[in-house]
Computed example of a mutant assay.
Amino acid sequence: MRALIVDDSQFIRSYLRALLEVHGIVCEAAGDGAAGLDCVRRFGPYRVALIDWNMPGMSGLEMVQALRQDPALDGMKIVMVTTEAENDHIEAALHAGADEYLMKPFDEAGLIDKLQMVGVVEA
């Protein structure tokens, strides 16, 4: 299984990669929404994309909207992984097409729980 991690924080990209690779998930990473979209275009759909909200250039919300405009990507699960904790942010992300919402800070159990909720890993 392949995952795309999109976050402007190198620490978060490395942390997510370490947590996912333990579970046998192969990861690609990008530092912003535009680079994340480029990964999807070059390497095809991923099983799941973990996307931060606040990034320079293209935000995570804009990336989610762009991904959901392509019917070929309908099967790709999207989890927003962000510090944005207000209900209006959560509603906007889910309305744009995110499948789940994980708030930072998080731990391995919280991440795996969200991935189970979207059907990416088994319970």
Rank of each mutant, 00 (worst) to 15 (best):
M1R: 12
M1Q: 06
M1W: 06
A3V: 04
I5E: 03
I5S: 01
D7V: 11
D8Y: 01
S9W: 01
Q10H: 09
F11W: 08
I12A: 03
I12P: 00
R13G: 05
R13H: 04
R13Y: 00
S14V: 01
S14A: 14
Y15H: 13
R17H: 12
A18I: 05
L19Y: 09
L19V: 06
L19G: 05
E21A: 06
V22W: 07
G24T: 11
I25L: 13
I25M: 13
C27Q: 14
C27Y: 06
E28V: 05
A29P: 00
A29I: 00
G31Y: 06
G31C: 11
G33I: 08
A34Y: 02
A35L: 14
G36P: 06
G36K: 09
L37Y: 11
D38Y: 02
D38H: 08
C39A: 13
V40R: 08
V40P: 07
R41S: 11
R42P: 02
G44M: 09
P45V: 06
P45S: 12
P45K: 14
P45E: 12
A49F: 04
L50M: 14
L50V: 11
I51G: 00
D52Q: 11
M55T: 13
M55N: 12
M58F: 08
M58G: 06
M58N: 09
S59R: 06
S59H: 09
S59N: 11
G60P: 03
L61H: 04
E62R: 08
E62W: 03
M63S: 04
M63P: 01
Q65A: 14
Q65I: 09
Q65D: 09
A66Y: 04
A66Q: 13
R68A: 05
R68I: 09
Q69P: 01
D70R: 08
D70I: 02
D70V: 07
P71Y: 05
A72E: 14
L73H: 05
L73M: 10
M76V: 06
K77I: 00
M80K: 04
V81K: 04
V81S: 08
T82R: 03
T82I: 08
T82M: 10
T82W: 03
T83Y: 02
T83M: 12
T83L: 11
T83G: 14
E84D: 15
E84Y: 09
A85N: 15
N87A: 13
D88W: 13
H89G: 14
H89R: 13
H89M: 12
H89L: 11
H89D: 15
H89S: 15
H89Y: 15
H89N: 15
I90R: 15
I90M: 14
I90E: 15
I90L: 15
E91I: 10
E91S: 11
A92C: 11
A92H: 08
A93K: 01
G97M: 05
A98V: 04
D99E: 07
D99K: 00
D99V: 00
D99C: 00
E100S: 05
L102S: 10
L102Y: 07
L102K: 03
K104N: 03
P105F: 08
F106I: 10
F106C: 07
D107L: 02
E108A: 15
E108T: 13
G110V: 05
L111D: 07
I112L: 15
D113A: 12
K114M: 03
K114Q: 13
V118T: 01
G119Y: 04
V120T: 01
V120D: 00
V120S: 02
V120E: 01
V120I: 14
V121H: 04
V121A: 10
E122Y: 02
E122W: 05
A123Y: 00
